[in-house]
Write a protein that binds this DNA or RNA. Structure first.
Length: 857
DNA sequence: AGTCAGCGCGCG
DNA sequence: AAAGCGCGCGCTGACT
């Protein structure tokens, strides 16, 4: 320790070497280790437990690197007793913090507090969830408090190091002030008619705008909601101007005619060539809902994610890291009831800093031409298509939904009724039923549990205590090291059913979980959010995954409130394949639902990348690779393979392709397919796979070599996956990064092919005036709705484009393997029928066979 | 009454 | 030697 300890006698009263407030004193060499540093320190550094010399050194190094003077720091810990093999538990942490840490803070009165790890987070702020709360500056104890992840987790996952250092930078800037930040802009508040007229004139001349809106209400269709304000930073004649218009807010002069204000500016706004925003899909959707057809030509969130898929993508973290600007902002919840002026100011700052972030990201993309190509040819055009798809929504058959809802609830309720016959009929107030088996009590108040056939503690009691089924598997070990709860997962139920094939309770439960999930996640959810045009909406994220795949769901803000106002978004990528659910989705009368999916695309891409000779041969001759594997595994001729054997071969192909080990194969074969493999047979299946595709071994080794050397891998078109965890000292973390290095380029390329297909197909539809719309992207499939009379023209376009993507022309990739797009059509998703090539290319001949003429109700 | 993590399961 | 990869969401039970 380099620093002068000052006067160590100032705190002696705080620490108690005989402390027995928790059990930690039994497991440590030094009970209640004191903090250290100068007694006049104004910075308090809080770790989980007293640091080992290694971590102390690491922390000091990084603090100095960030520009924090160690002489001003006092180091301490949440839990004062250090032990590597004993967990203090939630209670221990709380007790220790209340008795020592909080008193240290009282005595020291620091101006700045830095906490490392989840324990510091909960002890200092009362929050939990380190990944959510890290990197925020809060006012507490008369100090500025910032929590970041622990040095231990950074060492274990080197991928976190960048963000960790950024957090330390933020802490340093909080102490030392922001030296490199931009001067905030001069803001013009457009709150009179005259100013509006002037703004419109300037907008006509603007070559670029970075825009942002603040909103209030559940979504853009919420009749009670609206756009609170619209801000822009624009470039007019080489000069930058930042402005904001107050709109739908009680203090706004335009509160009554704010929609007219937007329409007044509409032609000027729409004509601006470069329209930039952060997560601009959100802003564009709102603006379009009120008639202003804003575009997003460059999205700073999407650019940031493409450049580094692991980074924090919010505007504030980017401002901090790219511009050195202090986090700005207000609480954006319920803007209607907040004073207007701070909202306007905040709205402006978003666009001003966003514009400067744009300038930097743009340069970074230009410096990496392959990423720039992906951005301009894939990311931004896909974003436009998704705006349209999200606004349109996916048609749902309202009648079928009503029927299905009734059936699903009836089925579940009937199963519950039958299950109740096995539940002992005793008053809940009695603790035991004369069997020595107590009816379970719940929580601190020791209330008697209510019957609950979901995965609840009552259910655990019912299955394992009352009915005395054997415990097959347990969940994660508890904090105190005790056994985990008995598992109620479907997989263990299947195993129980093997042991007791005729037990009526097991039979009932097998059916119940399906209906329960259908009720909660699907039918009742769809009923909640179906709109007046019989459509449900999703929010696709182009920056929702590390591989470039899309994710589907709802806006982040809508996830926060769990119960009421659950938001309108629904995940379109997890709709059960069961026709009972997929049969609810479809196309309205006069239109037909079309699903086009890439057949075995990941397998084909793996063959393309690895150049495996046998794989190339099989694909080029159009062989069914799963059937091939089944034949290899069973030693039978292909003609004698049963459907079940082929089904079992599928996980072999996809699992081993991406680095699965035989034990996991054995487990999934048993749990998912109910097929028993001996250890020998499972090991043999893995050997069979790599015997069949020896090129995959070389490809796996190559990916491992690349990621170990460069810490990153690339897809064929140059999408980058950064894998800093490859530098972890932890073998499991390292190995995981190796498997990700194998999987990522394949998954990335497949999803980019799908996105490109969506863009090109939609362009072609528009060019030819075909009435057809993209509804959803489901990873390697695209859902469309197409006007019946245009089907014969549309289907060949879809198939031709997907099977002949211009990858050579656009990305310099010569995809020299056959790609197959399977086309299904029908009135509904669940009963869409697959077409042969002949039927696709001559659809007019088959129209009557596949198209059902329906009349709108 | 709201928040959060863990679990389990829907999809590719 | 040996933990396929990538997601979102509902429910429970613990907490504030």
């Amino acid at each position: 320790m380099m620093i002068d300890e000052g006067n160590p006698d100032i705190f002696p009263i705080l620490y108690d070497q005989n402390c027995k407030l928790c059990k930690m004193h039994e497991f440590t060499d030094e009970v209640c280790e004191p903090g250290f540093g100068r007694n006049d320190a104004d910075i308090l550094i809080v770790s989980r437990m007293p640091n080992s010399p290694t971590y102390q050194e690491l922390i000091e190094q990084e603090l100095m690197a960030a520009g924090i003077e160690l002489e001003r720091c006092f180091f301490t810990a949440v839990v004062k007793c250090r032990s590597f093999d004993q967990d203090p538990g939630r209670k221990g942490i709380k007790t220790c913090a209340e008795n020592y840490l909080l008193r240290e803070i009282e005595a020291l009165k620091p101006k700045f507090i830095l906490g490392f790890g989840n324990e510091a987070l909960s002890a200092l702020t009362g929050h939990s969830g380190i990944m959510k709360w890290r990197g925020r500056v809060e006012e507490k104890y008369g100090a500025k408090v910032l929590i970041t992840v622990s040095p231990a987790s950074v060492t274990r996952n080197p991928g976190q190091k960048g963000a960790w250092q950024a957090d330390l930078q933020l802490f340093a800037s909080t102490i030392n002030g922001y030296t490199d930040g931009l001067q905030p802009p001069k803001i013009s508040i457009v709150n009179t008619k005259e100013k509006l007229i002037k703004l419109k004139q300037l907008l006509y001349k603007a070559e670029l705008i970075y825009y942002d809106i603040e909103t209030h209400g559940q979504d853009e269709w919420d009749a009670k909601g609206g756009i609170v304000s619209l801000a822009g930073t624009m470039v007019v004649n080489k000069s930058i101007k930042t402005w904001v218009i107050p709109l739908h807010h009680p203090e706004s002069p335009f509160r009554k005619d704010w929609q007219k204000v937007l329409l007044y500016l509409k032609p000027a706004l729409e004509g601006i060539p470069k329209q930039i925003a952060h997560n601009g899909k959100f802003d564009a959707k709102w603006m379009r809902a009120y008639g202003v057809m804003m575009k997003v030509t460059f999205d700073t969130l999407l650019a940031a994610h493409l450049l580094d898929e692991n980074r924090l993508k919010g505007l504030k973290p980017l401002g901090r890291m790219l511009l050195g600007v202090a986090p700005w902002g207000i609480d954006t919840k319920d803007l209607w009831n907040q004073p207007l002026r701070p909202i306007l100011n905040y709205n402006c700052l978003d666009t001003f800093y966003g514009y400067h972030i744009y300038l930097i990201l743009r340069e970074q993309l230009i410096a990496q031409p392959r990423l720039l190509r992906i951005f301009t040819l894939l990311t931004m055009p896909a974003n436009e298509k998704l705006i349209e798809a999200e606004m349109r929504g996916h048609w749902i058959d309202r009648e079928r939904l009503a029927t299905a809802t009734k059936i699903a609830f009836d089925m579940r309720d009937e199963i519950d009724r039958q299950l109740m016959e096995f539940v002992p009929d005793i008053p809940l107030t009695e603790g035991s039923m004369g069997t020595g088996v107590p009816w379970p009590k719940m929580g601190k108040k020791q209330k008697y549990a209510e019957v609950n056939f979901n995965a609840s503690n009552w259910m655990r009691w019912f299955m394992f205590d009352w009915l005395e089924f054997p415990v097959i598997e347990r969940g994660k070990k508890k904090e105190d090291g005790s056994l985990g709860d008995p598992s109620l997962a479907e997989a263990t139920m299947i195993q129980l059913k093997d042991l007791y094939p005729d037990h009526p309770v097991l039979k009932l439960l097998e059916e119940r979980s399906k209906w329960q999930k259908y009720c909660s996640t699907y039918v009742s959810r769809y009923s909640e959010i179906i709109d007046e045009n019989d459509r449900i909406h999703t929010v696709f994220k182009l920056a929702g995954t590390v591989t470039g795949r899309l994710s589907s769901g709802k806006e982040d803000e809508e996830k926060i409130s769990a119960r009421k106002d659950r938001g309108r978004g629904v995940n379109l990528q997890q709709v059960p394949r069961d026709p009972f659910i997929r049969g609810l989705f479809g196309a309205p009368p006069g239109w037909t639902f079309v699903e086009a999916d890439f057949g075995q695309i990941e397998f084909r891409i793996a063959v393309f990348i690895s150049r495996d000779a046998n794989g190339l041969r099989l694909i080029r001759s159009g062989v069914d690779v799963h059937l091939e594997m089944a034949a290899k595994m069973t030693g039978k001729p292909k003609s004698q393979i049963t459907p079940q054997e082929r089904k079992a071969a599928k996980p072999v192909n996809f699992g081993y392709l991406f680095g699965m080990w035989w034990k996991k194969f054995m487990k999934t074969a048993k749990e998912k397919y109910g097929i028993d493999f001996t250890e020998e047979a499972a090991q043999q299946s893995r050997r069979d796979f790599f015997d069949m595709y020896p090129g995959f071994v070389r490809w796996h080794n190559r990916q491992r070599r690349i990621v170990n050397e460069y810490g990153r891998v690339q897809s064929p078109i140059g999408r980058v996956r950064h894998l800093p965890d490859i530098f972890s000292a932890d073998k499991m973390v390292h190995d995981e990064a190796e498997r990700q290095a194998i999987n990522s380029p394949v998954q990335s390329f497949a999803s980019d092919m799908c996105a490109l297909s969506m863009i090109l197909i939609d362009n072609e539809f528009k060019r030819r005036g075909i009435q057809g719309h993209v509804l959803a992207l489901v990873h390697d499939a695209i859902n469309f709705e197409i006007k019946n009379e245009d089907l014969a023209r549309a289907l060949p376009i879809i198939k031709r484009i997907m099977e002949n993507l211009p990858l050579k022309k656009k990305f310099g990739v010569d995809l020299d393997i056959p790609i197959v797009a399977d086309i299904k059509v029908g009135s509904h998703w669940g009963d869409a029928k697959e077409l042969t090539d002949e039927q696709v290319y001559n659809f007019a001949k088959y129209y009557d066979e596949f198209v059902e003429e329906r009349i709108a109700a």
